[in-house]
Computed example of a mutant assay.
Amino acid sequence: MICLFPSSRIVCLLCWLFLILALVLGYIWWKPTKGGTNADVLPVVLWHGMGDTCCVPFSLGSIMSLIVEQTKGGYVRSLEIGGNVVLDWESGFFIHPNEQVEYVCQQLQLDERLAKGYNAIGFSQGGQFLRAVAQRCPNPPMRTLITLGGQHQGIFGLPMCPTLTIRSCDYITRLLDDAAYTPEVQSKLVQATYWHDPIMENKYRLGSTFLADINNELIINEFYIENLRKLKKFVMVQFLNDTIVQPKESQWFQYYTSGQNKVIQPFTESKVYEDLGLNKMHRQGKLVFLGVEGDHLAISKAWFIQNIVPLLLEK
């Protein structure tokens, strides 16, 4: 959270204290791993989104419990970035995705329960971060990647961003509008690394230090293509009434036609469709597109059980 005006500092301080207390209490009650008694189902790895943490009970903690219940004791690991709950929350804003992905790859390799493979679920920006894990770190092997509201082609606008205050959201948006591709902003603000300006495509490709790379927009990295094709399924969930991700079609790997920010280009006509090998995955039936009515990450327990749990139970 960023305090822009002196008069708001007391409120900001109280918000920070409340946040830290909530995170610490949540961490005491909920751990980054859960389950593990049922070895007949693949483990599940979760990566939270912006403004969230790995394990608090009102967010991913409840998802962990639900998965353990529905898989009859399957092992679930919810990624905690940085080794403690405060760093984990800060990572959603201030730790570069490349650093986070490298850290996660190391942690997954050390987890013996994942050695034979795992399924992965990414929430919001955690979706494209887990895709980077699939592309960069093939061991242990990721089997099915599920992204809930992931921004695979980036964003161009951040309305109603999930920060602690409206002022923080406004500040981040202005920063992205004015200086997203400067080295300083790219290094210090996570959202800048997948800010995709469709009007200045060259500036985006040259300035983006994360998304342009994992989408093969600078060079064609065959290693990325090869590793992504190893997925059994790549499931993308779009929230059809999303007020946070702009454009919401990025959740289905679509984006604006270059040069403007109104018309969405068909997925199969985009350059990344071929450059990342998505065309072959599409023909092989590995790409799955799901839509759900509701705002960003607004999914019900019933919808999750009906649509996501069967994917986790597949052999």
Rank of each mutant, 00 (worst) to 15 (best):
G35K: 09
G154R: 02
K72H: 10
Y204V: 06
N307S: 10
Y204K: 05
I2W: 04
F253D: 08
V76C: 04
K248I: 02
A302V: 06
W89R: 07
L110D: 15
L110W: 03
K280N: 08
T182R: 07
S187E: 14
T193E: 13
K230F: 00
Q70N: 13
N241T: 14
F18R: 15
L176F: 06
Y204S: 07
E69C: 02
L46M: 05
R9K: 12
F289Y: 15
L276D: 14
M236W: 01
H296K: 05
I264F: 11
N38C: 07
P138R: 11
D170V: 10
S168V: 07
N119A: 00
I166H: 09
L66M: 10
F210P: 06
G74D: 03
K34M: 15
P32A: 11
G73P: 05
I264V: 13
V309P: 08
S7C: 06
F5I: 08
T268K: 12
G149K: 05
T173H: 12
L13S: 14
T53M: 07
R77Y: 10
D111T: 08
K188C: 07
L87S: 10
Y118F: 15
E80L: 15
I95H: 04
L175Y: 01
S168Q: 11
G291H: 09
K301L: 07
I299A: 09
V292F: 10
L4D: 04
I299Y: 12
R205W: 02
C137I: 00
R9Y: 13
K262F: 14
G61M: 02
H196W: 07
N98T: 10
L297D: 11
L189E: 09
I20E: 12
L108V: 07
R167P: 00
C15I: 08
T33V: 13
E99K: 15
K232I: 04
I2Q: 02
Y224F: 15
Q265G: 04
E69S: 13
E90W: 11
Y256R: 05
D295P: 04
V11Q: 12
L297V: 15
P162E: 01
N119W: 00
C15P: 00
V190P: 04
V45M: 04
G61T: 07
W195H: 15
S91M: 02
R113C: 04
I28D: 02
V235T: 06
P43E: 04
M64F: 02
G149N: 06
G36P: 09
L206A: 13
